[in-house]
Amino acid sequence: MAAPRELKITPIKNGTVIDHIGNGLSLEVLRIIGVNELDKDSTVSVALHVRSQKMGWKDIVKVENMELSPRKVNAIALIAPTATISIIRDYKVREKRTVDLPEHIVGVARCPNPNCITNRGEPVESEFEVARRRPVVLRCIYCERQMDDFLEHLI
């Protein structure tokens, strides 16, 4: 008999489920979501190291009463490109999509080049274009420096 799946977490009425997060990356996803900004009555559940048919092991994050801004979805796409995002309304999955990286990523990560003009107090947001997709490499549109270690540079 198949074991009941993912019942370790209480169902939520309204909110967002981020599933298929790469093993161990859920804490970064929480940082992107910005748990401090949440409604004080919202529950956040995190499942670490969950067995997954597709991925071996994965993490899951479920947040009540919140939908993600496009900018946050982009940030998640960078560090957890396999993630799926499900919108739950009235206990049901209303919408489900995979995260995908747009051609231009604005304001999500800082340029790794300390001498880049975007790191010098100018009134400008960082902006990258996708230099390569698999694995993802971004290129700063200002200084042209490439970056693949997004975790360290998320804003």
Partner: peptide, 25 residues
Amino acid sequence: PNEGAARLAAQTSDKPVINAGDGAG
């Protein structure tokens, strides 16, 4: 002295910008 300065200047300016060297860029 900073890389990317000319690209930023071009976005800010409505007149043409010619880059005469931006940092190591």
